[in-house]
Structures are given as structure tokens and as C-alpha cells.
Design a protein around this nucleic acid. Structure first.
Length: 450
DNA sequence: CTTGCCGGGCT
DNA sequence: AGCCCGGCAAG
């Protein structure tokens, strides 16, 4: 069953589209034509002025759209009734005229207006064949090229309907009508994806990352699309849609990881895809060497790092290179750039003062290893310094103050403990009363001085 | 740990 | 100035 139908639709020129099917029939059934006229009119109304001249296109477009729905239904119906096969669209109309109409309406609404709808609907139920006939013209025109036209038209319509995000499509479609399969394929795929998913970001990313994924996609898309059209299965369509969306993304991600080489030179965030490239860059730009010369002492190695880049991110990030590190991602960028960079680059160019040398270098290293510990290290350094000094300070400062006036000697000369026993010893704690005031006050005993 | 006492704070 | 105490250093 399905096979037959499928074949037929193809004949009609992708009868998939309702119109297409109807059109096909027409050839079979001359009647339909006239009767269909009414329907056509309605359709035309919906479509608008252009229809009169390009009626075919419009109809085709509509049909195309209808196809989706019709196709799905058709299949079902055919299963129920073999007769329907031949005139899939027409039959449908007759049998399910209302349904078809409804669908058409739904689809039609975007393209056209209400007025046409009623006319179309009424006729369709009553004159199912006519509808088909209306479509007929399209098939005629099509012939071999007709398919393409239809497709193109469909694409155009879709594009238009979907919105106009892809202005390109319209243009392409317009030109595409004339153009061969390629054009329509492209436009189709583009419009399709855009219309269906409306996932622009995705498309953009694809384009940005022209790598393998996108091409296959377009092809796949086209194929799947065609298949869906031919089969006229809603299911298939949905499936195809899935492929379109699901597949692409995964693929990208799969292939998205790439090794890049990032220049670590201060303020230079150059990222190249090859080590040789980055080395040359460093040699030439930063080391001021002759770029051509292969001579390399390996110094460049210190100025670039190998990074794994998620192409998705990269694509986004590349445009904004500044932030640097979507590529490098999180932590690395910050610490390496700030600390490492300085530490690495400085050594070569900057001479530290004796003091700075010891500490700073250490700091740098530490920082490099533990980005967020930077402050810690500082603290440490400070603390170390403080430790020593403070100790002296307290004593010194005090001493100083005192010393100035009285006594370095004091500090240094703490009165050696007198050998003589003192009040405390003599009287003991119990007889504290007997102690000399000095002793009571914890001062140098005045009673038993040495 | 004990003792002696300096340095300091509080009243 | 007197009183008191924390704390250090010598023993």
C-alpha cells in the first residue's frame, strides 16, 4: 500500500503536497479541474493576487504545506481504502474534505485570509475532486522540473510562513525557482530547518563551524526531507526533523574538541591551531626573531600552552576573543594569564631587586600552582616579615622610647636577680602583710636589696 | 614550677 | 602616687 502511494505521489511530483496529489489526479481525472476551480478560487483568494499569474506556485506552496498533513492522513486512509491510493489528495478531500480543509485553513491562515477559506472549505467537501483539479495545474507545469519548482515553492512558502528570519531564503528561493536542484535543496534545507525548529542559533553555529557536520546535515536534511515528502508520512517528517536537530548537535559536540595553542605572552591571546604556528608567532612577534627561520631554541615552548577547545565554545568565543578564555575555560585563564604570565615573562625582561627576587619569584610560583592562594602567599610573606620584626619591634620600640630617655640598658640590663632572699621568700605568701611594699607591688624588693 | 621584677594600667 | 597585675626570665 504505502509503496504504491508513495510511488504515485512521486509521480504527481511529490504528491506529498496535497496540491501535488490533486494535481496528479487531475491528469487522471479531467473533471476535477473545473470543479476544482472553485476550490482554486478560494485558494487563490487566500494566496492573493500573485496566484492568478503564478497560481501554480501558490497552489503548489499550499499544497506543499498541506502535504505534510495530507500525507499523514492519506497513508492512514489508504490503508482503510485502497481506492484512495490513486487520488490520494483528492480522495482525501472527498472523504475527509472537511479535515483537509481544516488543515488547509490552519496552514492557509498564515499565508492568506479568511475569505478564501470558506469558499475553499465548502467546495472541498462538496467537490473534493475540484480541489484536486485546482492543484492540477501545478503538476502539469512541473513535469520533471515541476518537482523542483514545487519544492522551491514549498521552501519559499515555508520560509515565508515560518517567518522571515531567513531573508536569504526568499531571495534564494526567488532565484532558486529558476535555479536548479542545488538552490532549492539549499533553500529548502535552510527554510525547513529554520521554519521547523526556528533554532537560529544552531544554524549560525553550524555556519560558523563549517567543519564536517554542517555539510552532511544539509545533505541529510535534503534527503530526509525528500524522503519525508515522498513518503508523505507525518511520522517520517517528525523523524526527519529529529534527525535534523538531534543529529547535528551531537555530531558537533563529538567533533567539537580540538587542540589549540594559545600564546601566553602578556596581553597576547593569540590562539593558533598548530604548534608550529604559535611558535612562529611567538618567535616573530614576541621574540623578534626571524619568522622564517626554523631556528628555535625551544624558548617559544614556554610562551604558549596547549589547550583543548570545544569548538562550539570556540566558535562563539573566537568572535569575542577578548574574554579569552571561553576556550581555556574557567580557572586557567585567570591565573595563568595574570600570574604566570607575569612571572614567566618578567624573568626574561625584568630584573628584580634583590629583595623582590627572593620573595616575588616564590610568590609567582605559588600563585601559578594555586591561583586563588595568591592572597595567602602574600599574607604569608607579610606574616613572616612581621613575625621577625614585631618581636623586635615590640621590644625595640618600647626600648626605644624608653631607651631614648632612659634605657637601652634597662632592656639589656635587667637587674640580675639578687641572691638575697626577699620578703616573699622570707615571710611567705601567708604573711604577705609583712612584705615590703615593693614586694607587695611586685617591684624590686626594697627591704632586702642586693 | 617558683621567684623576682619589669612594664603598664587603673584609680 | 599608690596599688595591682600580666608576663618574662632566671633559677
Amino acid at each position: 500500500m504505502t509503496s504504491k502511494r508513495l510511488l504515485e505521489p512521486q509521480r504527481a511530483g511529490d504528491c506529498t503536497p496535497e496540491g501535488g496529489c490533486t494535481g496528479q489526479r487531475e491528469p487522471v481525472t479531467g473533471k476535477a479541474f473545473k470543479t476544482n476551480t472553485q476550490l482554486h478560487e478560494g485558494a487563490i483568494r487566500n494566496l492573493s493576487k500573485e496566484i492568478s499569474q503564478n497560481g501554480h506556485y501558490h497552489t503548489s506552496t499550499r499544497h506543499y504545506i498541506h502535504k505534510k498533513f495530507a500525507c499523514g492522513r492519506e497513508e492512514e486512509e489508504p490503508s482503510s481504502g485502497g481506492l484512495l491510493k490513486h487520488g490520494c489528495p483528492a480522495h482525501r478531500l472527498v472523504l475527509n474534505g472537511f479535515r483537509v480543509q481544516d488543515q488547509t485553513q490552519v496552514e492557509a491562515r498564515s499565508p492568506v485570509r479568511g475569505p478564501g477559506e470558506p469558499a475553499c472549505r465548502l467546495p472541498s467537501p462538496e467537490m473534493p475532486h475540484p480541489n484536486t483539479s485546482s492543484i492540477i495545474p501545478v503538476p502539469h507545469d512541473r513535469s520533471p522540473s515541476g518537482h523542483a519548482d514545487k519544492e522551491v515553492m514549498a521552501a519559499t512558502v515555508l520560509t515565508t510562513l515560518s517567518t522571515s528570519p531567513l531573508v536569504l531564503n526568499p531571495s534564494s528561493s526567488a532565484s532558486g525557482v529558476d535555479l536548479a536542484g542545488k538552490a532549492w535543496k539549499e533553500s529548502l534545507s535552510a527554510s525547513y530547518s529554520s521554519s521547523t525548529s526556528g533554532n537560529w542559533s544552531w544554524d549560525a553555529s553550524d555556519q560558523s563551524v563549517p567543519s564536517t557536520p554542517s555539510p552532511p546535515l544539509s545533505n541529510d536534511t535534503g534527503k530526509s526531507f525528500l524522503l519525508s515528502c515522498q513518503s508523505d508520512d507525518n511520522n517520517e517528517e517528525s523523524e526527519s526533523t529529529h534527525f535534523l536537530f538531534e543529529d547535528p548537535i551531537p555530531r558537533k559536540r563529538k567533533n567539537s574538541m580540538k587542540v589549540m595553542f594559545k600564546c601566553l605572552w602578556k596581553n597576547c591571546e593569540k590562539v593558533l591551531s598548530t604548534s608550529s604556528g604559535i611558535q612562529r608567532h611567538i618567535r616573530t612577534v614576541h621574540l623578534g626573531r626571524n619568522g622564517d627561520s626554523d631556528y628555535s631554541d625551544g624558548e617559544e615552548d614556554f610562551y604558549y600552552s596547549e589547550i583543548e577547545v570545544n569548538m562550539d565554545t570556540l566558535s562563539e568565543g573566537l568572535s569575542n576573543l577578548t574574554p579569552t578564555s571561553p576556550t581555556t575555560s574557567g580557572p586557567p585563564p585567570v591565573f595563568p594569564v595574570l600570574t604566570c604570565d607575569v612571572s614567566r615573562t618578567e624573568p626574561a625582561n625584568v630584573i628584580h631587586t634583590p629583595l623582590s627576587q627572593s620573595a616575588p619569584s616564590a610568590l609567582c610560583h605559588i600563585r601559578t600552582d594555586h591561583a586563588y592562594q595568591g592572597p595567602m602567599t602574600q599574607i604569608r610573606t607579610v606574616s613572616i616579615g612581621e613575625k621577625r620584626q614585631p618581636v623586635n619591634h615590640t621590644t625595640v620600640s618600647k626600648t626605644h622610647t624608653n631607651s631614648t630617655s632612659t634605657s637601652k640598658p634597662t632592656t639589656g640590663t635587667r637587674k640580675p636577680r639578687g641572691e638575697a632572699k626577699k620578703c616573699r621568700k622570707v615571710y611567705g605568701m601567708e604573711k604577705k602583710d609583712l612584705w615590703c611594699t615593693a614586694c607587695r607591688w611586685k617591684k624590686a624588693c626594697q627591704r632586702f636589696t642586693d
